[in-house]
Amino acid sequence: MNMDAMFDICYLSADGNTIEPDDIPKTKENVWVLGRKYSAIQDLERIRRDISSIIWCTYRKGFVPIGDEGLTSDKGWGCMLRCGQMVLGMALVRIHLSADWVWTPETRDPTYLKIVQRFEERKQAPYSIHQVALMGASEGKDVGQWFGPNTVAQVLRKLAVYDKWSSLVIHVALDNTVVKEDILQQCIVKHDQGDSSSASDNVLISDWMPLLLIVPLRLGLSEINPVYIDGLKMCFQCPQSIGVIGGKPNQALYLIGCVGDEVIYLDPHTTQRSGLVENKMTDEQKEMDCTYHCKYASRIPMLAMDPSVAVCFLCRTRSDFDQLCNTFEQNLMKESQPLFEICEKRPSHWGPSTNDIDLQYTSLFNDLEDVDRQFDDSDEEFEIL
């Protein structure tokens, strides 16, 4: 079987007939995916090519046991963790490859393989389900317990500190507020250049650490308030957008774009076997790599989304960050009900900016995430074994 056939085999119906996907509507409205504008009519194949280049993380089974209960699958509880992996995977692709990078079943780029390996079901992989689930315990979530968008953001923030190769800063905005001062302190790295005795040689050189900015939001109590829809669309349209961690009630989804009043998403609710891509030399490794890519996205109405979301942006450079802040101030802040606030300095009532204080603060969000979550039942119909 050739590699394209391996990739396409997932899109056959039970009786073996090819399914015509309903991923992108035939419309004259613009399609937005990860900050890029497309025509649904003229760019359909390009949209699908770019969507299939996203690293798709799904439930897996048969991995090394996790936690006291020795769980060997994350079916029914890991969908939000998988959405977090997808956001981080997208960030790493943009940082270490490019925004225009394209995956094919033949891809064996060593940098790409290094990124995928970071999400494999191995305990030592920096962002494996094992690492994410176990780090979740420090956020008060037992292994096998469902995460909310904020919890997965905080867990990724902690894990990224230990992965020097990834070379990014994850900043999770607190209390619906993006504080420029805090972000600049994290992202600007000063190097003392020049060891000679001449003072003029000791020049401070500033580098920018790429920023993954995650803003957890609650856009309503039990359902989304329509007043936030336009702001949400603006987030998908920012060039720095790398999607939204969200979903529909009781099902986490990676929301990658929008068309009209619908969101486009990748769904983690498919259970695939665990395995290693490694250097992609064997047929089994090539086949495993194809399981990290989904050819067709899906859609739901924005108003059908769960109101608990986290909007995500990647700023590879200081210029990207300044442009993003300008977009927020010129567009988002003009909304009658802005999604969040942006300010220059940390609000005085927050106290000093230390990681310990920030981590304590996250427990305030957890109360919002434990409402009406009976996960396993609602996932059952989405399983493909």
Rank of each mutant, 00 (worst) to 15 (best):
E369A: 14
G246A: 02
N331Y: 04
S308Q: 05
M86I: 13
V116A: 00
E278C: 15
S308L: 12
V169I: 12
S98I: 10
D376N: 07
C258H: 13
S198W: 06
P210I: 00
D201L: 07
G144N: 10
E223R: 04
D289R: 00
I170W: 09
C294I: 07
D175T: 10
K61H: 13
F375C: 15
P105C: 03
F340P: 10
R318I: 15
V64R: 14
F382K: 06
V189M: 11
S167D: 15
E121N: 03
N2K: 01
F328T: 05
L364G: 15
F236L: 09
S274I: 15
D376M: 14
E120P: 12
K28G: 08
K295P: 13
I384W: 09
D283Q: 12
V152I: 14
P105W: 00
V215Q: 02
L88C: 03
T27A: 14
C290V: 11
V102L: 05
D367G: 08
G148K: 01
H191L: 13
A133C: 05
V371L: 10
G16D: 14
Y11H: 06
I66A: 04
D43P: 01
Q154E: 15
L174R: 03
R46T: 07
E181N: 10
V263F: 03
Y59K: 13
Q374K: 09
L71E: 03
I24E: 13
S222A: 14
I55F: 09
L71P: 05
P249M: 13
K190H: 05
W77I: 05
I51Y: 01
V155N: 01
W208H: 02
Q240W: 03
L81E: 03
L219F: 10
Q131N: 04
E380Y: 15
W77V: 07
I300L: 07
Q374V: 15
C187W: 04
D23C: 08
L332H: 07
D4T: 02
E69T: 12
C83N: 12
D370R: 05
C315F: 07
D195H: 02
D261I: 10
Q330N: 10
V87R: 02
G246L: 04
L71H: 04
P301R: 01
C83T: 11
S52K: 09
E383N: 11
Y11S: 06
E287W: 08
R49F: 04
I205M: 10
M281Y: 12
I24Q: 09
I242M: 12
V87F: 00
D201F: 10
Y162M: 08
S319W: 00
Y112D: 09
I229N: 05
K141E: 01
S200K: 04
T27P: 02
V179Y: 09
S353Q: 08
C325L: 06
L204W: 10
S241R: 02
I129D: 02
W165H: 10
L253K: 12
A99I: 06
R273D: 14
V87Q: 08
D163G: 11
D74C: 11
I245R: 00
I357H: 14
D4N: 08
L217C: 13
E380H: 15
W146P: 12
V189H: 01
H130F: 00
A173L: 02
R49G: 12
L217F: 06
R273A: 11
C312I: 08
H269N: 01
D230Q: 14
T354G: 03
E329Y: 03
A125V: 06
M6Y: 12
T107V: 10
M305D: 08
D379R: 11
A91M: 09
P301L: 00
